[in-house]
Design a protein around this nucleic acid. Structure first.
Length: 733
DNA sequence: GTTAGGG
DNA sequence: CCCTAAC
């Protein structure tokens, strides 16, 4: 063992498995059909939409829905176009990120940079718009607008937000609202841009807008930079005053197209800027009514950030639409990457301790939303309608299709636009509507699986390596994942609350909403952060990269053996999760290698698989439901731990588990005295059965012999004790 | 909060 | 590992 350990290689597999499937949730069960892929840009654009139909639904229901979605996808992977999109996205994203980000890369993985870019761009653009105050009206223009949105995909959320938000500024001419979700890698921004007139120069417009934004709305720009990402959560939307002009918002993709300059700026902006406070306000207030930015953790850059060209395209359609008023909205989300912050976050957010640090970071993200609240009612209704009919497209567009095409989207969007109109148009009516259907639409782009750390002997075969990886993945996924809902950086634990009660309503800041995959049992993982965050609206999940992702999964693996690694990783991003785990593991002894084995190979999962798995579990949870508390992850005892346990028991005897814990496992936080007691119980059982019947990592016979010896000894002692105390009774009996 | 045991 | 009874 020892030798192997020394030689063991540690592989850190960062699997950020990005489960990029897009999930559509609709409580109603409406799924939006996926659309065919479009171009790359489209992909980018694509975003998820998730809908929560009822605000009233309980948080639990929400979770369940998510889980279901996952399951469905799992079941019908092939069918869904989404996947393909996702893949594309991924690939796409990565590429983009790399390209675009070159600068950034270092910092963040791809996504982050991308996001930033997007944001920046977005911001810039948005700002300008903002100045101009555009509000798109839902009504007629709405349609056009919608299209835009749809196109962008971002819309999903943005739509909600945007639509809502836009109260009505009409612009002349044709305005289109494009909502873009830029997800840099991680984030999306949804910006809605209104283009007047036509798409004529959308590009130009954009550019100009951007510029304007920067210049025009200094605030925004400034804000961005300044703002703390952190705050983003609130996501306020500044509402634009009225508009003026054009508003554009673009979220661009970080990736390619954006000009370098943008990027650079973007970074700043994003990072700094997105505070709710700072950014949003200024920018929003100025021009952008609704700025909704979605940031996606994942990589989903796609959506938003398309290449300029793409963007252009998207916008154009919009323009084409009609000349309506132009309204803009920007939704911006900000994330911040809080790489660092993780700690804090963790502490904060997670009650259980499970929460992922990342999440906390998210807090930062929060979106700023704003107007959404306003819009909601009708919009939602509309959405539904749309969804049912076209809308699906619409929604979906957001998710999946997106990028591709705005075009398609547009059509969809139209519907949406209609919605928008409605909202705006009939504010009064809205209220009524609301009550009926207020649905919260959510889009989850993806869930990520955090890094996996694997330790394996150098002498191990490739096959064993593969298996080990699988095991690790399995452990993570199979360990049980649950979906955590994070609102404003805080984990929402009460499943019985309705979305409305919780503050998740179409009106509200969806941006502040996040979803995370959490290990069921696991102790440590911070829920929130976890993997994916969904931000509904705006999603900004900025940083997901860094930290987030994954925590849960990762954790397991880390657990035992890799404290060091863990630490490092954590720093990187993962770490947070791990914390507890590794803590625990090491102390006693560590054993490094073993664990891998322990994780069984139950599953061999590929990331995608993981998705499915994940999905599944959630479901279960759902059933279980209330039990938020999840079963801790299974952490097989390593030989070293067994050794330590045996030694302690030999000395202290059975029946003093607390002392055993303190003596031998004090540092193993994940090993409770009950665990030790249970382990001893199983060891005794194991020692008594034939080797063939034993499962799991083999325990040296020598230890098993000691177990039996010690067990016999202490049992005898215990008996003696009893006799002493109650000699007669015993004797008599 | 610990133990002991069943599940 | 969880859950619970019993202490």
């Amino acid at each position: 063992m020892e030798v192997t350990e020394l030689a063991s290689l540690r592989l850190s597999i960062e699997t950020n498995m990005v489960l990029q499937k897009r999930l559509y949730y609709s409580f109603n069960g409406n799924q939006v059909p996926t659309k065919p892929r479009a171009t790359r840009s489209a992909r980018r654009n694509s975003t998820f939409q998730r809908r929560l139909e009822d605000n009233q639904m309980c948080a639990f229901d929400l979770l369940a829905t998510v889980a279901d979605t996952l399951l469905q996808e799992k079941q019908n992977p092939a069918t869904s176009s989404d996947r393909s999109l996702e893949k594309d996205r991924d690939g796409f994203v990565k590429q983009e990120c790399q390209d675009a980000n070159k600068p950034f890369k270092t910092e963040l993985s791809d996504e982050a940079s991308c996001d930033r870019r997007c944001q920046q761009e977005f911001v810039k653009e948005g700002c300008p718009d903002a100045n101009k105050p555009l509000k798109a009206e839902l009504s007629d223009e709405g349609s056009s607008d919608r299209k835009c949105f749809s196109n962008i995909s971002y819309q999903v959320y943005s739509q909600n937000c945007c639509l809502k938000e836009f109260p009505h500024h009409e612009m002349d001419g044709h305005s289109c609202i494009a909502s873009i979700t830029s997800s840099g890698c991680s984030e999306k921004f949804v910006a809605e841009t209104l283009v007047d007139g036509n798409g004529q120069n959308e590009m130009e417009n954009l550019a100009s807008k951007v510029e304007l934004g920067s210049s025009g709305s200094p605030d925004s720009s400034g804000c961005k930079l300044d703002g703390d990402v952190n705050k983003v959560k609130d996501g306020k939307f500044g509402k634009v005053p009225d508009d003026t002009g054009t508003g554009l918002c673009c979220s661009e993709d970080p990736l390619d197209e954006k000009p370098p300059a943008l990027i650079s700026s973007c970074d700043n902006a994003k990072l700094s800027g997105y505070d709710d406070n700072s950014m949003p306000h200024s920018s929003l207030s100025k021009g952008c009514d609704n700025v909704v930015v979605d940031s996606r953790d994942d990589d989903e850059n796609f959506s938003g950030c398309a290449h300029p060209g793409t963007k252009m395209k998207s916008f154009r359609p919009i323009t084409c639409i009609d000349g309506r008023k132009i309204k803009k909205r920007l939704a911006t989300k900000y994330h911040k990457v809080a790489q660092e912050s993780t700690h804090d976050k963790l502490s904060n957010s997670v009650l259980d301790g499970n929460l992922m640090p990342v999440y906390s970071s998210r807090k930062n993200y929060y979106k700023s939303q704003r107007s959404q609240m306003n819009i909601p009612f009708k919009k939602r209704k509309l959405f539904k309608c749309n969804s049912d009919t076209n809308s699906t497209g619409y929604i979906r567009n957001g998710d999946a299709y997106y990028s591709p095409k705005i075009e398609a989207n547009q059509s969809v969007s139209c519907s949406s636009s209609g919605m928008g109109k409605d909202h705006e148009t009939s504010s009064l009516g809205q209220s009524a509507l609301r009550s009926r259907d207020s649905h919260v639409k959510l889009r989850i782009k993806s869930f990520r699986v955090p890094e996996l750390f694997i330790e394996i002997p150098e002498t191990a075969t490739i096959g064993s390596l593969k298996r080990t990886v699988m095991e690790a993945v399995t452990a993570v996924l199979g360990g049980g994942l649950r979906v955590g809902v994070i609102l404003h950086g805080k984990k929402v634990r009460d499943d019985s609350k309705t979305l409305l009660q919780t503050g998740i309503s179409h009106d509200n800041h969806l941006d502040a909403l996040g979803f995370a995959l959490e290990p069921n049992s696991s102790q440590n993982i911070p829920p929130a952060c976890a993997t994916s965050s969904l931000r509904i609206p705006s999603a900004n999940m900025p940083q997901p990269f860094i930290g987030y992702p994954s925590s849960p999964a990762v954790i397991h693996q880390r657990i035992q053996g890799f404290p060091n690694m863990l630490a490092e990783h954590q720093a990187t991003g993962l770490g947070n999760l791990v914390e507890s785990d590794h803590d625990s593991a090491p102390s006693p002894i560590n054993t490094s290698g073993e664990k891998k084995l322990s994780y069984s190979k139950e599953l061999i999962t590929v990331p995608e698989m993981g998705m499915e798995v994940l999905a599944v579990q959630p479901v279960h949870q759902k059933s279980k439901r209330t039990e938020i508390a999840q079963r801790r992850i299974r952490r097989p005892f390593s030989v070293a731990e067994v050794e330590a346990l045996v030694q302690a028991v030999e000395k202290l005897g059975t029946g003093r588990w607390r002392d055993v814990k303190l003596r031998a496992f004090e540092n193993a936080k994940h090993r409770t005295y009950v665990d030790l007691k249970d382990k001893w119980k199983t060891l005794v059982h194991t020692a008594r059965i034939s080797p063939q019947q034993r499962r799991g990592e083999p325990v040296p016979q020598e230890l098993l012999d000691r177990v039996l010896t010690a067990h016999a000894y202490w049992s005898q002692q215990q008996t003696k004790q009893q006799l002493k105390h109650h000699p007669k009774p015993c004797l008599l009996l």
